[in-house]
Design a protein around this nucleic acid. Sequence first.
DNA 1: CTAGTTCTGTACCAATTGGTACGCAAGTGG
DNA 2: CCACTTGCGTACCAATTGGTACAGAACTAG
Lengths: 209, 209
Amino acid sequence: MSVSGRPRGFDIDLALDAAVDVFWRRGYDGASLSELTTAMGINRPSLYAAFGDKTQLFQSSLRRYVDRNMGYVATALAQPTAHEVASAFLLGNAVAVTTPGLPAGCLSVQAAVATEGSSQLALLSENRATIEALFADRFRRAIDDGDLAADDDPDELATFLVTVSSGLAIRAADGVSRDSLLTMVRRAMVAFPPSTQSSTHTDHPSADS
Amino acid sequence: MSVSGRPRGFDIDLALDAAVDVFWRRGYDGASLSELTTAMGINRPSLYAAFGDKTQLFQSSLRRYVDRNMGYVATALAQPTAHEVASAFLLGNAVAVTTPGLPAGCLSVQAAVATEGSSQLALLSENRATIEALFADRFRRAIDDGDLAADDDPDELATFLVTVSSGLAIRAADGVSRDSLLTMVRRAMVAFPPSTQSSTHTDHPSADS
DNA sequence: CTAGTTCTGTACCAATTGGTACGCAAGTGG
DNA sequence: CCACTTGCGTACCAATTGGTACAGAACTAG
């Protein structure tokens, strides 16, 4: 398989997981090359050869984080009603940011705040905006489905969800318990418009007005 | 007044304001001594003589920030009903984190996320907890006043408010507009229990039993 | 075995970090 | 004028930052 040359002496995926962990706890600027290489169990030149410079390593770490730790977003989007979508997202978020054995809070929130002008912030904001757009689209579809009222604003609802979830992430890093955050979610969901249909999902094939 | 010696060549309050601004935008770790001294218009030894080391300067900056930029907390606490207290707090927060000419977001949220183990985080969490306790006490009083239902949980409501406001701060730093955030506040307030009395404040002297 | 390729480890780089020693300037009380 | 006290500026410190040069180790192809 490998064309030739000395084989890599470490598992590249395990190393990336270790990098995710460091960035998660320390943020981008707070994660030093020394701490990264120590956690990854490799030397500096190996890191540069395998992942590029620090910004590229961070991008790879963010991608991996989204794939492995933000699955609840896709799960939420797949729920049948807008209310369930929102609820699943916030509950999943509350659980994710308070998972024992993992750093409290959210990598994306944690790292975004540290830096100000660099391309990292743009990356994080982009990520956040993408998620918001996914929910906005989902809610537009919900309106087409008759699941949300026509005068509900899909963009506003999506922004609301991302705002609340950002708050959850901050508070988790603050040390607030999972139970408390789940209670916050239940309360926040009071402000989310209820399903217009009685919780059974209409199964019409597509939405033509 | 001054005992003797060469008079200070800069306004200590103005310098502190400049430090607040730097910490606000960059966070604690992100604010370097060089950037601080440049912004404050003084040399390093002057900074150390007047403010102590970096952590002490940060504490002074935080105090000043709370005094000058979080007045809406006291304003909110003085409102007659719990609902108005909560609404005033969130609205005031939304406005404060999106004030033109000032950095977007909240110093306390901004700086807290960067660091992890240091005493700075403890300071910020303490600050957050203090505010939360103030609102919890206010809501306990509201229950005594009959303004909130007896089965409303003052601690939970206070945590809810701080969680939402943290989300507002993050989103403001993200670039979300003031109007959007105000809309978020209106929505979040839907989840806050309404006043049990018709907006007129009972004026009984104190709460016994 | 040799040539070519790729990874590893040591040892280094310039730049920046927070923090300080010390001589001088600028005031006050005598 | 004199001590005395205090702030200012330069010039420095060790430690750490992100990043790299280079020699040699480990593998494959011939």
